[in-house]
Amino acid sequence: MKVLISVDMEGISGIVHPTETNPGGYDYERGRALMTAEANSVIAGVLDAEPTATVLVADAHGPFRNILPEQLDRRARLVRGKPRPLGMLAGLDEHTDAAMLIGYHARAGGGPGLLAHTMNDDILDVRVAGRSMGEIGLNAAMAGHLGVPVVLLSGDDAAGAELHELVPSAVTVAVKHSLGQATAITLHPEEARERLRQSAADAIKRYTQIPPLAIPGPLDVEVDLHNPLTADLATLVPGVSRAAGGRTVAFTTPDFTDTYRLLLLLGQLATIKPG
């Protein structure tokens, strides 16, 4: 059995503010330790249920270099660094049996969700076939396109609700209750880890009962952008055009793999500043 654990940072227990998630920020090093510890709990839960499983952990936050390699459970392999194929899901392929989204957050405009956003601050909304989707939906659909179910998600209550709208049978663990963009009631980290270990084991035991999220193509996609410069750059990409409003771009793809890759490119274009 092969399991991919994609670990973001905003949905880790105890974390409530961007300075705890950004390199160089106040308490970022503590945030890295909390993130690594929750990843370890999920690894342990997977291996409790399936001791011979191959476990990959994709560091899926910001620079993709947050998890402390020397503190990660040595039974897992770590995917870190960027850019890379499939972004937050690096390591996923058609041979993967189950995916888990740990430390995730609600989409931009969703919730109220703690530290809610979609990919970066420049992307205000992504609509795939008319449905608004954040990182949870996009990653679940990318995994589903390869036939892989997302069986477990952890984060705040808004993140869990977002996945349940798409995959009602998935296991979710709310490690904190969102009160706003930078405020939450959070579990003690040790309590969160205990729940994650048990939930990971439970999810693996019934992974065959949780269906992949399948969104067949062709797909019409619209992306609302905060920065008009990003829209200017996006229209240089073949197949991408401006839609109504000037800051919305649109494109059509044959399947979700092309949708996902184009969104990764738009995320990178958003980091370019005027020359």
Rank of each mutant, 00 (worst) to 15 (best):
G25R: 03
V171E: 10
Q181K: 13
T52D: 14
G267L: 07
K2W: 10
P274N: 09
H164V: 04
G31M: 11
I204V: 15
L152S: 03
K2C: 05
P254Q: 15
M9D: 06
Y207P: 00
A116F: 07
T54H: 15
E50N: 08
M1L: 13
S154F: 02
G109K: 04
G87M: 06
D8A: 10
P168D: 06
A98M: 12
G45A: 12
T230H: 11
V79H: 13
V223K: 02
L78Y: 08
A201W: 05
L236R: 14
D258R: 15
E194V: 14
V249F: 01
H164F: 04
H17N: 09
I210N: 03
A231W: 04
A231M: 02
H145Q: 11
V7Y: 02
V249A: 02
G45M: 11
G180R: 09
L225M: 09
I123G: 08
I204H: 01
T183L: 14
R74N: 03
A143T: 11
P63I: 15
L179P: 00
Q71Y: 07
K2R: 15
G239F: 04
K82M: 09
R131L: 07
L56P: 00
N66W: 11
P63Q: 15
K2M: 06
T118D: 05
G160H: 09
V57L: 03
V223Q: 04
D258P: 03
N40H: 02
G62I: 01
H105F: 03
A106S: 06
A159L: 06
G11C: 12
T21K: 05
L92Y: 05
I272S: 07
V150A: 01
